[in-house]
Design a protein around this nucleic acid. Structure first.
Lengths: 233, 233
DNA sequence: TGTGACAAATAAGTCTGACTTTTTGGCTTC
DNA sequence: GAAGCCAAAAAGTCAGACTTATTTGTCACA
């Protein structure tokens, strides 16, 4: 992902950010810049920079005479990739994984429809390559190789949609898929039906059939929801 | 919205952020911290804090010996409310409004379905109040009052969905709706059909009918897309 | 001619200490 | 008990000195 610990203030962030998102400092907690600077053994200037970044993520609020206050979760910038990463690394990983999967289920089908409408020939080819790669690695306990193609597939769908907001969710989807493979529900070879669906989505995009691409992608995301027991049976 | 100009570094951000998102400093441009500090007449420490925030938004990258480089648009954190506000205030307002509307069209229907599944009685009542408010203000050139109820309606849908990621889009939707009323396509009373759809969505949610709520909300968002000529005819 | 190491220049990064400003909470006073 | 004033506290700001990493250019050597 992104380079961690870029400079001293980055080091501080990597310690303080996860602590806050994990609820170690619950909302309403008050921190003091000087004290934090001492605790992390950095100068006040470095500490201030870190606080400013946390502030821009709406994780904390800094006010004169009172200090640095942790904000309620509802105000956090939950779309900030850094915040997402911190939360995925901490105790509310399951909760984060669930809400991201629901987001996926809303966005990806629409993105697939858009991609079917105006994907370039090159993007179609790339999509097909990814799907075939998934087929090739879907058996024989090659989960890690499968993941690479899976991530690439969804990334193409999101970027080829031509919508910048969708495109930026590529990293998020990558995190979700990686999380599923590494920590959660996938223990054996992926569901053959899911693999087939990916191949069919690539087909639909190639044929320029947005309705079919959307429907098939919706089936994929429904499967992802079911894996996490989000859908009522 | 949020409080602007909170401190000196905030003042600098409000000047530099829009300048960057507007393309005044195109991607690849190199700025120097000291020079910027002079230009804005602030100390280097303040300037550094501002740069750190821009960096956390992935708008710029700061590297030793080279300076502060503007990143390509594709890497910007386009979900950061501050970035969205800057872009909406600048020259690519139309482009931003379009991509946000597409995002809405993906998210809101799914959110409505979730809301129909598990909205509290209080949330149902609030939703109905909003819909009735829209009806009451839909005639007689009361666009401003109508907007208030419209925004409230969509905010309830998004927050009552129970998904934190959806809930955080409330502000974004508010910006889009306000933008439409204030600068773009709405010159006369709102489309009566759209008003009726909102009332029906409230009904469907009250009755706990997720499928109908989703379908009706999709009709609303399709209308929004058509207003911006995004859908192929 | 190309390549390696080495040196100089450059701009960000860091630290420190002094000073300013705002806010709050208590205390005085009427 | 309410209004207003005072003092403490913590963030905010600034200036200057110093460190460090990175790039670029140079020069010698193969």
């Amino acid at each position: 992902m992104t380079t961690p610990g870029r400079g001293l203030h980055g080091r501080v962030l990597d310690a303080l950010g996860p602590a806050i998102t994990a609820g170690e400092y619950p909302p309403g907690s008050v921190l003091r810049t000087d004290e934090l600077a001492q605790r992390f053994d950095v100068s006040r200037s470095v500490m201030r920079e870190a606080v400013r970044v946390l502030e821009s993520m709406h994780l904390v609020e800094s006010r004169r005479r009172v200090g640095v206050t942790v904000r309620p979760r509802a105000e956090w910038n939950v779309y900030d990739p850094q915040v997402i990463r911190w939360r995925l690394a901490g105790s509310d990983r399951p909760q984060q994984l669930r809400s991201l999967t629901v987001l996926r289920s809303a966005v990806e089908p629409v993105a697939a429809a858009l991609t079917a409408t105006h994907a370039t020939a090159e993007q179609c080819a790339e999509l097909t390559r990814c799907a075939l790669g998934m087929v090739a690695t879907s058996r024989g306990n090659r989960l890690e190789d499968y993941l690479v193609h899976d991530v690439a597939f969804h990334r193409v769908i999101l970027t080829a949609s031509g919508n910048e907001m969708f495109a930026r969710l590529g990293d998020v989807v990558a995190e979700v898929l990686a999380g599923r493979t590494h920590h959660e529900v996938m223990f054996e070879d992926p569901d053959p039906a899911a693999v087939t669906l990916h191949v069919q989505v690539a087909e639909a995009v190639r044929e320029g059939d947005p309705v079919r691409a959307e429907r098939l992608t919706r089936e994929i995301t429904v499967g992802a929801l079911q894996e996490l027991d989000i859908l009522a049976p």
